[in-house]
Amino acid sequence: MQHPAFEEVTIHHHTDDATFKKKVKNTTILLSILTVVELAIGLLIYNMHKGEAPNELLVLMFKGMVCILTLAKAYYIVSVFMHLGDEIRNMIMTIVVPLLLFIWFIAAFIWDGNSYKNLRNKYDAHYKESTMPTKH
């Protein structure tokens, strides 16, 4: 069927039902598992915070793991649910490459946010005293 609205489209894909259903099912299970793992790590961090003097590095590592898991979830949602994985390579690139801008976007903003804290702690004693958490 060559529909007028498809004039720009050269090749029409047809996925058969069985493969499609299987793919969706697998992805759903995978997303659920990833979410459960994330929640488990979240609770782990919570319990570490409750204890005496949590190991900062360990907490940071766990948080990093959650971030990676989130990126994996995002990958599956975009690739399977939004069918980006089925598009042709150049299309995928036009979506993925501009997202690389986020690297510098995030890095520079966070860097400067952190620097703002350090500068205030250095030059504003009252600020430091009144906002720095104390261990009770």
Binding site: W104, A108, W111, D112, S115, Y116, L119
Partner: peptide, 16 residues
């Protein structure tokens, strides 16, 4: 990639 060159004297981290 260059936006903060408008902000050199605002208290931006000098190394950044």
């Amino acid at each position: 990639l260059v936006w903060a060159h408008h902000m050199f004297v605002t208290g931006l981290n000098p190394f950044l």
